[in-house]
Amino acid sequence: MASSIENNNEKLTLKSSDGEEFLVEKHVALQSTLLQNMLDSDCSSADVIPLPKIDARTLALVLGYCKKHADASSSKQGELNSFDSEFLKDMDMGALFNLVLAANFMEIKGLLDIAAQKIADTIKDKPHQEVREIFHVENDYTPEEEAAVREENRWAFEGFP
């Protein structure tokens, strides 16, 4: 098995947290440093690589990104940039968070970068109360403390409730 992965047409099977299996070409899988390291260190003898933290919907998106970037490799940066922005365009925050977690786990730097940037662009103009909910942050401030921090940064709240 280990020797057969030398073949470029070799395919891997990835299994999502909800049990769905994805057949992936090796050169597409190599977009992920995690999978690359597994292949390099001969861990590939298993027929199926389980990805217990990534659901099927997210994994399908991730593999779509990897396929585009693997196939286009280095040729058309402009085309890839427009693919990237279209790819994330109407994605809701929940899907974006799943995507960023998957990219982080699978170590896909480019995807992690664009997903984190998309999250930043989306929250940039939101009120802090909404950001708190988006990130599930527990508010440890007393109302008085929060008011004091707000007062210190009064200028940043122009136009915010």
Partner: peptide
Amino acid sequence: RLPVKSLCRFKCVS
């Protein structure tokens, strides 16, 4: 990745 103004506002998150 955020601008300074957003960051100063988000000091109120927690």
